[in-house]
Nucleic acid binder design. Structure first.
Lengths: 143, 143
DNA sequence: TTTCGTGCAAAAATTTTGCACAAGC
DNA sequence: GCTTGTGCAAAATTTTTGCACGAAA
């Protein structure tokens, strides 16, 4: 069995980035987070591990990781940007407008349709971000 | 023939908003714009008509129009928010990553799939914003 | 005439940057 | 040793807000 899932140093090297404690910490936090933390939250979580991390470093690291394709920036509405590990498959983000909770859904059919549509227009998709503002009307799978 | 398309005063009244020259100007600019202007651009275009309009008024008017459902805020990446008249049908925004140009496409099939998917999860869609970052690979409809 | 909108300037919030020092390779 | 990253503080950018005055209903 490989050690890929936790070899942050190797992931950084593979991305052509220098390995620093700050980058290791931030990358590990992002990989271990089920939610989509923003810069402030990442700073707090990083400082729980290494007290000296600065907010400027968080922003610079996020830019570097994003440019390397390791993470994705989520620009939601009326709130600071959030970040997630680059997903294996494109997916949609649903924001529950009452609770603020963000959940993800993946739909191959939508992804395929979108790719075909763009292709017909002469475009190749680089990345995609769908933000759905929705309201819970009942428990799933019922009614 | 009706005057609906240019009766900005009535549109404001219908939305429960007071009719002011500033709101009339901003609403008319948004209705007449093929692009998706941001607050700064709206200020410039509004001032070409009425020199006294302030940026604070632009922001406050945009909030009011958005809350009334007349316009939609587009939160793209790494740039100030843009605004558009609330579209009749949900659509996707494609940002050409080389030119920065924003174009729109509408796909009933995707809208339907998305609605069904959310419904199955117990959600009702309030609004939706898809941002596709894409690169032109050829002229449309060829290849 | 009462309520709400506007302009101005100041403030808030998020993100970026200059600089000196430290650390990676 | 050369190059790049980091912390700090200051700055830049976008958006919001307090206040006094003016306009809408």
């Amino acid at each position: 069995m490989g050690a890929e899932t936790t070899d942050f140093a190797q992931a950084l090297r593979d991305a052509g980035l220098r390995v620093t404690p700050q980058r290791m910490v931030l990358l590990s936090i992002l990989m271990g987070s089920a939610d989509h933390p923003n810069a402030d939250e990442l700073l707090a979580r990083a400082r729980a591990v290494d007290d000296s991390v600065a907010l400027a470093t968080v922003y610079r690291t996020l830019s570097a990781l994003e440019e390397a394709g390791l993470i994705r920036k989520l620009t939601l509405e009326n709130e600071p940007a959030r970040y997630e590990i680059t997903p294996a498959a494109e997916h949609e983000h649903i924001v529950d407008i009452d609770s603020g909770e963000v959940i993800e859904i993946s739909c191959d059919e939508i992804n395929r349709l979108r790719r075909e549509l763009l292709d017909r227009l002469g475009y190749e998709i680089v990345s995609q971000n769908t933000l759905i503002r929705a309201r819970r009307i009942r428990k799933p799978g019922q009614g």
